[in-house]
Design a protein around this nucleic acid. Structure first.
Length: 429
DNA sequence: TCTGGGGTCCTAGGACCC
DNA sequence: TCTGGGGTCCTAGGACCC
């Protein structure tokens, strides 16, 4: 049996690091990135962390501090982050064949069967971290362990230190695990933390010492695996060929609550169109749609309602989906309610080719077949125009032109890497 | 004043079947 | 009279992740 070695690579303060890339004037300066509508802080550079700015803090609360301490503030710029993420993820395959992109700023790596042991892998680990920083400018950390869970723990330690940490051998493991609070263990969230504390489990070390079968009875099968993984027993594996998305969700919070049907309808139509575009891009069609509305969670009159509708046959045809979404919205909408957020979800996505053959299977009459082909051709043209002329150039009437539901994004940096018009300009003096 | 957005998986319970 | 006991499928809600 060869030694299992998993790695977790994580980009440090990713969004803030991306913003710093094209702003050499911000080296060693505090930077924060804000959520949609410039609502709350979603990323902080180390310098901003040092100034005491917390994750999730409302922007208005730190605005004063940001000005007085010269913190540079950015609205989120996901075109930039997504593009930088792709570059880094693509680099990884030059060192290791098995990569699972886990999130926009994280990837699991599988070094098993490549002939390394816990010592001989260190130079490679260092090389990966150094090269990514050198080639992309993004600082990263790489933790190693015999299971994915332990690689994750190792990454936490690496981030706080010099960017690498190795928990493959048992020796240091116990010492490290006893320093990790249970709430910070991968897979232990808000609800599970108090339950674990009640059972006397305060650190990752405590959890590792539990009887896995007892934990299974008390907390469930996922937590049993967690115990085993913390002990170096491999239960989780990389998902090398990620299954296609099963649902596509588009949602936004509105900066100001909306009580007017027309504005809400424009937002919902826009979300539906965006979801369809994504589905077509993935080559999938939806078997159903779900529209959800809710008011502010922080008011006593909190309201959260939704309605779903099936599609038969499954579709990614924007006009059909928008029409259905608006019908559902009509049913849901109540006069005088201040809606704070809307969500559209395409459900049960299937491969588009599968549906095509199904059509033949059921022997759709010629007219229906032809109608389908026309719908698909129309959508292809719309997508082509938007791809080549720029996102959102062509849109549906029901999406409206006011976009009153959109919030502020006053501090957005240019789309340096994805839009010709926004390319950075360098001058040699 | 503000409170992100986009996913996945598991579990419990109901309906239904033999 | 008795109302078993095992199985599947589906859905809603909960919990987690970043």
């Amino acid at each position: 049996m060869s030694l299992r070695i998993y790695g977790l690579l994580d980009c440090n303060n990713f969004f803030a690091s991306c913003e710093k890339l094209f702003r050499p004037d911000l080296v060693n300066k505090p930077v924060v990135v804000l959520s949609n509508n410039d609502g709350v802080v979603i990323a902080r550079s180390p310098e901003a962390k040092q100034l005491g700015i917390a994750m999730g803090e409302a922007y208005f609360k730190i605005k004063q501090l940001a000005e007085s301490r010269k913190i540079t503030v950015f609205s989120s710029n996901f075109s930039l982050y997504g593009n930088m993420s792709n570059r880094i993820m693509q680099m990884l395959s030059r060192w290791v064949p098995s990569v699972e992109v886990y999130s926009i700023d994280e990837a699991f790596l599988d070094f098993t069967n490549l002939g390394f042991d816990s010592e001989t892998i260190t130079p490679l680990q260092q090389e990966i971290v150094t090269t990514i920083k050198k080639w992309t400018g993004i600082p990263v950390s790489l933790g190693l362990g015999p299971t994915m869970t332990l690689a994750k723990v190792a990454n936490d330690i690496a981030k706080k230190g010099n960017g690498i940490c190795n928990l493959i051998d048992k020796e240091y493991r116990n010492k490290i695990l006893s320093q990790i609070e249970i709430a910070h263990v991968w897979g232990v969230g808000r609800r599970l933390t108090p339950k674990m504390m009640k059972l006397g489990i305060r650190t990752a070390y405590d959890l590792a010492a539990m009887d896995p079968l007892w934990i299974r009875r008390e907390l469930g099968v996922l937590q049993e695996k967690l115990v085993r993984e913390l002990n170096g027993e491999h239960c989780l594996d990389l998902n090398n060929a990620p299954s296609p998305r099963k649902s596509i969700q588009v949602s936004r919070s509105f900066p100001n609550a909306i009580d007017d049907f027309q504005t809400l309808a424009e937002a919902v139509a826009t979300f539906a169109a965006k979801a369809c575009e994504q589905a077509r891009n993935d080559g999938t069609v939806a078997s159903g749609i779900y529209v959800h509305l809710n008011t502010s969670r922080y008011k006593e009159t909190y309201l959260s309602e939704s309605k779903a509708q099936e599609f038969d046959p499954a579709t990614a045809h924007s006009p059909t989906v928008i029409r259905t979404a608006l019908e559902l919205l009509k049913d849901l909408f109540r006069q005088g309610v201040p809606y704070k957020r809307a969500t559209v979800i395409l459900l049960n996505l299937k491969n588009n080719t599968a549906t095509k053959s199904q059509g033949i299977l059921f022997d759709l009459d010629n007219k229906t077949q032809e109608g389908h082909q026309q719908e698909e051709r129309l959508m292809e043209s719309v997508d082509y125009i938007n791809r080549t002329m720029g996102t959102g150039k062509l849109f549906f009437g029901s999406q409206g032109t006011n976009q009153n539901w959109r919030g502020a994004s006053e501090h957005r940096s240019p789309k340096y890497t994805t839009h010709w018009e926004e390319l950075p300009i360098v001058r040699a003096k």
